[in-house]
């Protein structure tokens, strides 16, 4: 594994339609390399749908380029081979396999198919490195099903590292985590985003304020605002969308009050 040159994700005019219902429209999104970008918005804003479209799970139109590859309209496993990796809202690790086996399967992408017929002997270099990065060294031989919720998400991120994904799309990685786990995850994301492009879908404003480099706000399928954390939080349109939104009502109200004072 070489430290690959980080690359930008460039999405223009992305549109996703389900049976006439337009879930995502006119989405232009540029995420420069080495940036930790958060994608936020109320429920149903289309955040996950954007990720689904970029990873081949739903059909989207427009263009989405990463590392010279067009992402739209290609089968999932080819996208993965082009360096795109994602996680899901619910951790989906192989529960019956050990942490090590999970990572080893993720590493298989870069092995020749004939190696599949042999037994696993020793631990590949990149697996050791990922174990260290996500901090699961001590649990390597545990079945993944026995891991705590947060550890499963870290394992998933570890699997993305092992498969050498250069564009990481993470869907609510800290949902359901304790405060400590959140902090650990935030640090982990910081570390891995240095030489990769990382997009995080998130609801948690606290987490966002602590770790986001930049934020893109979605609302009803299109992009509402984009910029630094402070910049976005003081955007009146964002405040309007978030007012009364159950997930972050106090923060939004607080920001509204703050900005309201400014305009007065």
């Amino acid at each position: 594994m070489t430290t690959t040159r980080p690359l930008a994700l460039e999405v223009t005019g992305l549109r996703v339609e389900f049976d006439g219902f337009v879930a995502v429209r006119d989405v232009d999104l540029t995420v420069p390399a080495g940036e930790l970008r958060f994608l936020i918005g109320p429920n149903g804003a289309g955040k996950t749908t954007v990720i689904d479209a970029l990873t081949g799970l739903v059909r989207g139109t427009g263009t989405a380029r990463f590392d010279g590859h067009e992402l739209l309209g290609r089968p999932v496993h080819r996208l993965v081979r082009a360096g795109i990796g994602r996680t899901f809202q619910t951790a989906s690790v192989f529960e019956g396999h050990t942490v090590l086996q999970n990572l080893d399967i993720a590493a298989g992408l870069h092995r020749r198919p004939t190696t599949l017929l042999r037994r696993r002997r020793g631990v590949p270099e990149e697996v050791l490195r990922a174990l260290d990065t996500v901090g699961l060294d001590d649990l390597a031989d545990r079945p993944a099903g026995e891991l705590a919720h947060g550890q499963k998400q870290w394992l998933e991120i570890g699997m993305l590292l092992v498969q050498d994904a250069r564009l990481l799309l993470l869907d609510e990685p800290v949902a359901g985590m304790s405060g400590e786990e959140r902090a650990a995850t935030g640090e982990l994301l910081r570390r891995i985003s240095r030489d990769r492009t990382v997009v995080v879908v998130e609801h948690d404003m606290e987490f966002l304020r602590n770790y986001a480099d930049t934020v893109t706000v979605m609302h009803r399928g299109s992009i509402l605002a984009e910029g630094g954390v402070d910049e976005v939080q003081s955007d009146p349109r964002v405040i309007e969308v978030y007012l009364g939104a159950p997930l972050d009502a106090p923060t939004a109200t607080a920001t509204a009050r703050a900005t309201g004072r400014e305009t007065r």
Partner: peptide, 16 residues
């Protein structure tokens, strides 16, 4: 076995 338990995840690891 991984495919049996989590087919979608296997796909997202670059396997068919």
């Amino acid at each position: 076995v991984a495919t049996r338990d989590q087919e979608m995840r296997v796909r997202f690891l670059g396997y068919n």
